[in-house]
């Protein structure tokens, strides 16, 4: 049986006036049902574009998938018609978006918006049936008195509740893949933990494959089975969670870990990675991380690193990956 999702050498480019931006530049990973993949990286590293590319919903006009394959249950999503793709969105592949404050349509009731996936994907028309299904989904995500919430409008709900509604909407049609694109970034810290727990529970219950996009490694540590670290449109390191945290092979991964503040560790100032992520329209020759890398050597500036494997499922794209693991 093919894996749930297999992304092979995916390339998504944005054609802009000032040149071609290689937002996603040869991304490869796979995911099984029941597994959670954490996708980390700074803003602009290509995490979100990778997710949008999987369901082929890129900003109109400029963004284009120029190469690679997205195999979902063995079928290449890049080959199917737009109409077939639409039927997969929201039924087999669902999204939990970043900002619950702006993700719900302000002029329609919660119930009305939650009925949509059922109407469009399951052809459900019966009012009583729809209502029962919506209430059931709201109960499942822990919304109190769901019967009444159905008639409410988004502005009457708190941020945390709205994110629960978005999650309920995503799982209504029993998807097999859930993509959560920074689902907690816009929420209060206490609510963040609740939402992460909810996503985790939902995933276990439905045995979903889940992609969790975040720039927060501590979130990854708490929820994921494996991690892919992205930098400048590529996965620079990928592996099982304990492997990566115990023996990070890429200097960028190591820097990200150093940037997590820890209680008890005495430091004058918080660590941050110097410099800015590179402009994906003008990538330097050699390793794109070289200008910011604390472990840079001469070779890095002119020789592009290839992937190196450590064991069967840990890989890193660094010339010095071998020695990094040893230290």
């Amino acid at each position: 049986m093919p894996p749930l999702l297999e992304v092979k050498n995916l390339q998504t480019h944005f054609i802009t006036r000032s040149g071609v931006a290689r937002a996603v530049d040869g991304v490869t990973f796979s995911l099984e049902r029941g597994q959670t993949l954490g996708l980390v990286g700074e803003s602009g590293s290509g995490k979100s574009v990778t997710c949008s590319s999987i369901v082929r919903l890129l900003p109109k006009g400029s963004g284009r998938i120029v190469g690679g394959e997205v195999l979902f249950e063995g079928r290449n999503l890049l080959d199917i018609s737009e109409n077939e793709m639409r039927r997969i969105r929201g039924s087999q592949i669902s999204f939990v978006t970043q900002d619950p404050m702006t993700s719900l349509n302000p002029v329609y009731s919660i119930g009305n918006q939650m009925e949509e996936p059922l109407r469009y994907h399951q052809g459900m028309r019966n009012h009583g049936q729809l209502h029962a299904k919506v209430v059931e989904a709201l109960t499942q995500v822990g919304i109190p008195s769901p019967e009444r919430r159905v008639k409410d409008y988004p502005h009457q709900l708190s941020g945390g509740q709205r994110q629960r509604v978005v999650t309920a909407m995503a799982i209504e049609c029993q998807p097999s893949l859930l993509i959560a694109d920074e689902p907690t970034t816009a929420l209060d810290v206490t609510v963040q933990i609740q939402i992460l727990r909810l996503l985790k529970d939902v995933q276990k219950e439905l045995n979903l494959g889940m992609i969790l996009v975040t720039h927060d490694l501590s979130v990854i540590a708490r929820t994921c089975d494996k991690v892919a670290v992205m930098y400048a449109g590529r996965i620079v390191e990928e592996g099982p969670i304990d492997e990566i945290f115990a023996r990070p092979r890429h200097p960028y991964t190591r820097s990200l870990m150093r940037a997590i503040p820890q209680i008890g560790r005495k430091e004058d100032r918080l660590y941050s990675i110097p410099g800015q992520p590179p402009d994906v329209r003008r990538l330097p020759q050699g390793c794109p991380f070289a200008p910011r890398c604390p472990d840079v050597i001469d070779r890095c500036t002119h020789e592009a690193p290839t992937e190196q494997f450590f064991g069967s499922n840990h890989r890193a794209r660094c010339l010095r990956a071998e020695e990094m693991g040893a230290s």
Partner: peptide
């Protein structure tokens, strides 16, 4: 964002335009 989410839910484009966008 809500137009994006409507599309992510698999709402057909005509409904995205006339139901979700136009009323707003």
């Amino acid at each position: 964002d809500y137009i994006r989410l409507a599309r992510l839910k698999g709402v057909p484009e005509r409904a995205v335009i006339w139901k979700h966008a136009f009323r707003n």
